[in-house]
Amino acid sequence: MTSILGLILLSLALGVCALVAFLWSLRAGQYDDMDGAASRILFDDHPPKR
């Protein structure tokens, strides 16, 4: 019984992690430009960062 509860809590914690990760990526604008992301991966030299 305790092991089941522990496992349930563990699985929920993992689920929450995934939810938080999705919401974070959404906030960070990772889904804003799907077309651009597809071609961006082909640029090997990134513009200089400042």
């Binding site: 804003d32 430009d33 799907m34 077309d35 651009g36 071609s39 513009p47 200089p48 960062k49 400042r50």
Partner: peptide, 16 residues
């Protein structure tokens, strides 16, 4: 744009 010293962000969105 990134080569301009005072530019801190230049991002083109292909979708929009």
């Amino acid at each position: 744009l990134g080569r301009e010293p005072n530019v801190i962000k230049s991002r083109v969105n292909m979708t929009t």
